[in-house]
Design a protein around this nucleic acid. Structure first.
Lengths: 256, 256
DNA sequence: CAGTGGTCTAGACCACGTG
DNA sequence: ACGTGGTCTAGACCACTGC
């Protein structure tokens, strides 16, 4: 166990290396916790050790561990529950799901969706996808296409690209059988936790094929959402291009 | 000065009122700070008293004040600067501006924009606007229409609604003369700080008038962004309907 | 150098959940 | 009754800024 951080801030003398790359203790602890999460020491949905246990393990005070956990909780990687413990975030929870699914009905609550897998094949990475996923063009990627419906109404057409090396064994069948959010499947089947995503949004006109699948008139205005999703070390692991029908739905966002 | 919070947690006996509406000390302090911000005791850009001063004023420890400020800083109402102090957030800063202006060029940095005021009139509030702004239909609102350009290219057509009672004296002239973000003007001229906003985004087709103003073909796909902005007490003070040309621009967003 | 926010600790007590 | 996270305090020291 190489767990003890290096600081010696308790000892009074020798405060030689004060400049250079100073990093507070709790940041180092945060880094160690992140490593544990990344390596799967604690799985999504499970609880991590108590603050006192971690403090003992890392040889720091409870307050320092607390501050490290505070930051991870603020980033939604961990979830604190008073009286119960601290838990690894999971896409099984509805809350998390709607952090990543921003399309909502103009009136009422988002209803459960039906998902139809259109296609799932293994191909050589196109240049743009390779660049976004930090791969070489020769590398294999999985291309998944699906149609999401809200109350039987086709609404989202997704074109999803995943690194082939990580998602080995993903097939039309395995995806089709799965009920629930894709990211929950990625978690349980491939050990990949989606933690953060960047989106770029445009308005575009529906092409004929797209219009047919989404059951709208050709050239209808659609929301085009290009997403790059990241897992623990800010490593990109998914590119997703979505077309949203926004006649009775909208993309919600909050500016803080 | 009615500043001292009510808790008595230091005293050992009488812990009678433990249930009901328990609120931690630092939350009460946060509330008091919010009141001071709202009433303009410290203006945008100014520094607030030091943590030790506030601790003395509120009769609590520095740590408790610190936690209250931490939350306000996390919500971007305050800005901490080590060695200098804690400052009230202001829309004068570029950072803040781009928190509220999410349209960016597909390549390169967002360039400074030119703003052309099309119209500014005082009218009775339409029902939908009145509802969103928490007004009665009889109340006066100011309707401001403007066209934003990026490097001479018209890109955003804004239709803005403001409560007339608050923005008394806003005219085409006063707005036209102003250089810089609208929200900075609201701050300095009307004492209104925009703190948070909710947006609903759709894809729509350009109408003929809109197409002409934005110099795109009629029926071109446009991003429609409806925003409700809030000031300190979560009080809505602006409704804004924007049409964005997204041929060479996109709306960026981060999911956490 | 003094003043500000930032880190770290240690200890007490509170609120919540479970047995 | 116990263990969890949550609050509050007091005090020491560090890093940054500006006079």
């Amino acid at each position: 166990m190489s767990d003890t951080p290096s600081n010696d801030q308790a000892s009074d003398s020798d405060r030689a290396a004060s400049s250079a790359a100073y990093s507070p203790l709790y940041q180092q602890i945060k880094g160690l916790l992140l490593q544990s999460l990344d390596r799967g020491e604690w799985k999504p949905g499970e609880s991590i050790p108590s603050e006192l246990e971690l403090a003992a393990r890392f040889q720091v005070s409870q307050g320092t561990v607390r501050k490290a956990i505070d930051e991870l909780a603020a980033e939604n990687l961990l979830l604190r529950r008073q009286g119960k413990g601290t838990f690894v975030a999971t896409h099984q929870e509805a809350k998390v799901r709607f952090r990543f699914l921003r399309l909502t009905p103009d009136d009422g609550q988002p209803k459960v969706t039906g998902s139809q897998i259109l296609d799932c094949r293994r191909v050589k990475a196109p240049v743009d996808i390779a660049r976004l996923l930090d791969l070489r063009t020769a590398d294999a990627v999985i291309n998944l296409r699906r149609l999401l419906s809200f109350e039987q109404v086709p609404t989202i057409l997704d074109d999803i690209w995943l690194p082939g090396s990580v998602f080995r064994g993903l097939t039309v069948d395995s995806v089709s059988r799965y009920r629930g959010p894709l990211y929950a499947l990625f978690e349980s089947e491939f050990g990949i936790s989606m933690v953060r995503a960047d989106e770029k949004i445009k308005a575009v006109s529906a092409g004929v094929d797209q219009a047919e699948l989404l059951q709208v008139a050709p050239s209808s205005p659609l929301l085009q959402v290009e997403r790059v999703s990241y897992t623990y070390g800010d490593r990109p692991v998914e590119v997703r291009r979505g077309l949203y029908v926004t006649e009775r739905f909208h993309y919600r966002n909050s500016l803080n």
